[in-house]
Amino acid sequence: MSTAVQKPVIPRLLQAALVIAGIYAGFWLIFDLILAQPIPQSLMVMYMFFVVSGVFMVFTFTEESARQLIAPIRALVEDQTKKTLRNVVFIVVPALAAVAVFFQLQPSDEAPLELRSIHPAPPSSVKIFGKRYDLMSLENPYRHLEKDDPEQFQELVAVGGEVYIRNCQYCHGDKLDGKGPYAQGLNPVPLNFQDIGTIAQLQESFLFWRIATGGPGLPKEATPWISSMPIWQEFLSEEEIWQVILYLYDYTGHRPRSWEHE
């Protein structure tokens, strides 16, 4: 029966390997290259594990296909003419595994993994400058000037810019892109305000809370212990914080999120 069947152009084992490699490359192409949002390694391992299982299932559910898949491996082990190749494979494969294990077990200076939430749910109210602020209704006291008195608004933005350059740009960058001179030394990285996913998604009161209480003011799920954001209420005045917030939105062109328009 098998003699009548034409041998496939590509051996089954190679086919399987190509399919798996193709799917992996597809993931990489789509998520890393096109979408610029790579799949985290921990998830990728599991994805590929089940992809490999699936490919194995498809390639072995008929007896003939399974035989063809295993034929090269069987030949390698049993065929006396491939003795040299066998010896090479039997040395190289375990050696590769050993090398992989060796590097995997190397201690590294990478911090242990933490489940970190960057924009944690804010508390409904918070104590800043000895006063209690209700974050749900708190608004930037200068925001109304944008319409009422554009000139004064621009002045305040300029003041905010100065506050920013004196205090913030070292980490968050002079282009507000999170790439200041010190940014490389920090982990987690300083926030990139230009990104549509950061301040554009937040209310001004959230920024006020984050700036005033800094890293230590984060709730537990946001790992306050690894954030290096200072507690700015100890260095800046309330007015300065509001002004710098004006500047952040003005420079990046984002609009603060507001519940009224939704």
Binding site: Q37, I39, P40, L43, M46, E110, L113, L115, R116, I118
Partner: peptide
């Protein structure tokens, strides 16, 4: 079905993704 809501990320991946949430996953 298997994709978790909260991803386990290395710090390197956190940097690339720019946050703990994956836009598409």
């Amino acid at each position: 079905w298997f994709t978790p809501h909260t991803l386990v990320l290395t710090n390197e991946e956190l940097k690339v993704l720019g946050g703990p949430y994956h836009k598409y996953l």
